[in-house]
Amino acid sequence: MLKNISNLGDAALYCDFGDQINIETNLHVIKYFKNLQKLNLKGITNITPSYNKLIISFDLSIINYENLKKKIKNLNFKEIEKNKSKIIKIPICIDNEFSLDLNRLSKKLKIEKDKIIQSFINKEYFCYMTGFIAGMPFLGDINSNIRLERLETPRVKVPKGSVGITEQFCNIYTFESPGGWNIIGNTPIKIFDKSNEENPIKINPGDRVIFCEINKDEYFKLNE
């Protein structure tokens, strides 16, 4: 539940839903996010959900912190319908060309590469949030036997489509970008599509994702 609201600067509300990072806490965040989106309150310019926080940015020339906080506190939100969460299948190719950190993971975790892949694919992951770069989904939770911290020195360029894991989470690099996650494969699917202005991202907070393995031929056929 919403535990506390404080200010982040003079033009944003910082809503704290507690220290626990789990699906239950995150579903509360998403519930607030979706309801606030629908309400379309005057002055709100952006709403950013994350694991256990929700940041509500507003236009300081229209409303201020105290007044918006009062409004938000008095809102009564209904539960989001459970069946609205979609299951999305994402193809992933684990060829050596793409799985940049699989050898490192295998050595560090002392698990064979095949076993790591078997542990990772065909499992349902929950999308906690989207962002950092356009459309990047933060998914979880991966099996505890393949969890590892991020690279000590982040890569300057992680290739577009890379699927990375770190700690209990995995993500997809929607653009070439700097990054420190352990890269195990690559998806040919376009996750962010600016030509679809209504619905530019494939994976939204609250959705569920399953990675399905494909070979290199299939990868190049699907390449978007």
């Binding site: 982040l8 600067g9 033009a11 944003a12 990072i21 952006n46 950013t48 959900p49 994350s50 694991y51 256990n52 926080k53 929700l54 940041i55 940015s57 949030m129 962002g131 950092f132 770069i133 933060f138």
Partner: peptide
């Protein structure tokens, strides 16, 4: 834990050198 950012936020990473988020900032940090 990664969470939303807004412009003007001053983050301090492990190296102790502050970074101020400007208009094209990453949305999560």
């Amino acid at each position: 834990r990664s969470e939303g950012l807004i412009k003007g936020v001053i983050q301090v990473p492990a190296d102790g050198n502050p970074i101020i988020m400007l208009s094209d900032h990453g949305t999560i940090g």
